[in-house]
Structure formats: structure tokens, C-alpha cells
């Protein structure tokens, strides 16, 4: 009976993961694509639970579902006049599909054909304690490098995304003018490249 439950969990979570990922390809709206990404990430978190990796599953939900998706939504909301269009590039989609199919055949063949050796029955227990201990004992140098990397990424992201005060004022004024439907005073429009009409479809 528990075997049936495990099968049900694996196949439904696999369908959720692959279905969510496929909907990102189909979805034409970028915001919807991020929501489908959240569904796919939740499916992967559930798959971690079926692999009895509870700590990684919780970290997955906290960082991917909680932080990264919200960060992506912020980036979409902060680029209000860019296209919300999530469609494929017609010129590159064909060759990309060909490459991806070749990669898929190769990886599937390796995954199925290789003899992966003995299957362990017992899963790792007390994972949070073991991971924490090995992080500050055996993996102390990568741990410190990771800390420096995160700090550098934080400072770099803030330095890149920061606006000068006069730039911010001009930007806010042009946005305000656009929101009020007043197209006449818009200093940014002078340097605007013309937007394609289909780009506005999903906004």
C-alpha cells in the first residue's frame, strides 16, 4: 500500500514538474511563465522529499519558490515599458530544438544504459546536522568562497541597479506622464526604439 502511495507521489510530482516546465515554453505571457516556473520548482521540491532529502527540499522552497521567483517578478514589474512577450525567436528555435533533441537522446541513453551499481536501501538520516558539520569542517574553503561570492553579488547587483537621482527623476516623470495618458511630455520617448505591435499583447 505504501508502495502505491510512493508511485502516486512520484508520477504526480513528475507530471507537475515537466508540465510546469512545458507550460513555460507554451506560455506567451512572461508573468504567467514565472508562475509556471514556481509550479515546476514546487514539483522538484516534492521529488526531493520522495528522495528523503528533507533539508534540500525546504531550502528549495525557501530560495527558489520564495526568493528567486519574487526577484523575477520584481524585474518584470520594474521594466514596465519592455515587452511582456515570452515567445520564441523564430530564427533560433529550430536549430535550438535540433541541438536539444540530440542532447536529450545522449543523456537519456547514458541514464538508462549505464549500470549504476548497487542500490542503497537506507537514506541519509540527520541531514541538516551532517551537512552543517561538513560545511564547516571538510568544505570550509568553498563555504568561505561562497560567502564572498554572495557578498560580491549583492554589492554588484545594488551597484548595477542603482539609479542616479536626476535619472530617477526623469524616469519617474516620464512614467507619470504615460500613466496619465499624456504622451506630449515624455523625454524618454525621443530615444525610444519603436516597439513591435505584438509585444504589447500580454501586458
Amino acid at each position: 500500500m505504501s508502495d502505491f502511495g510512493f508511485h502516486l507521489a512520484f508520477w504526480s510530482l513528475a507530471a507537475m514538474t515537466i508540465g510546469g516546465a512545458s507550460m513555460i515554453i507554451i506560455s506567451r505571457n512572461l508573468v504567467h511563465a514565472v508562475i509556471w516556473l514556481v509550479m515546476s520548482m514546487l514539483g522538484v521540491a516534492g521529488l526531493y522529499l520522495t528522495l528523503s532529502a528533507e533539508f534540500i527540499a525546504v531550502v528549495q522552497v525557501l530560495i527558489y519558490v520564495g526568493a528567486i521567483s519574487v526577484l523575477m517578478l520584481f524585474a518584470i514589474m520594474l521594466t514596465p515599458r519592455a515587452e511582456r512577450d515570452n515567445s520564441q525567436n523564430i530564427k533560433t528555435a529550430g536549430p535550438a530544438g535540433l541541438v536539444v533533441i540530440m542532447v536529450m537522446i545522449a543523456t537519456m541513453w547514458v541514464a538508462i544504459d549505464t549500470d549504476w551499481g548497487a542500490v542503497r536501501e537506507a537514506a541519509l538520516t540527520e541531514q541538516a546536522r551532517l551537512i552543517g558539520e561538513s560545511l564547516i569542517k571538510h568544505y570550509i574553503l568553498p563555504f568561505e568562497i561562497g560567502a564572498v561570492l554572495l557578498t560580491a553579488a549583492l554589492v554588484g547587483a545594488i551597484a548595477l541597479a542603482r539609479q542616479d537621482d536626476e535619472d530617477a527623476a526623469v524616469h519617474a516623470a516620464s512614467l507619470q506622464a504615460e500613466l496619465e495618458g499624456d504622451g506630449s511630455v515624455d523625454p524618454v520617448d525621443v530615444v525610444d526604439p519603436p516597439l513591435p505591435s505584438d509585444g504589447e499583447a500580454g501586458s
Binding site: 515537466i18 516546465a21 513555460i24 522538484v44 515570452n86 543523456t107
Partner: peptide, 29 residues
């Protein structure tokens, strides 16, 4: 359900992500 199931699932997910990364027009995509 053994190791191969998860490996095939991972390969499929990787290929979908690869296709999205290669073909989407939008940087966030």
C-alpha cells in the same frame, strides 16, 4: 521506482530548460 526514473526526469527537465534558454526572446525568459 529507482535511480533511472529520477535520472530520466532530470534529463528531460534539463532539455526543457536548455530549449527555453536557447530560444526565448526575453532576457527574463
Amino acid at each position: 521506482i529507482g535511480l533511472e526514473h529520477y535520472l530520466v526526469l532530470g534529463a528531460l527537465l534539463f532539455c526543457i530548460g536548455f530549449f527555453i534558454a536557447l530560444s526565448k526572446k526575453n532576457a527574463v525568459g
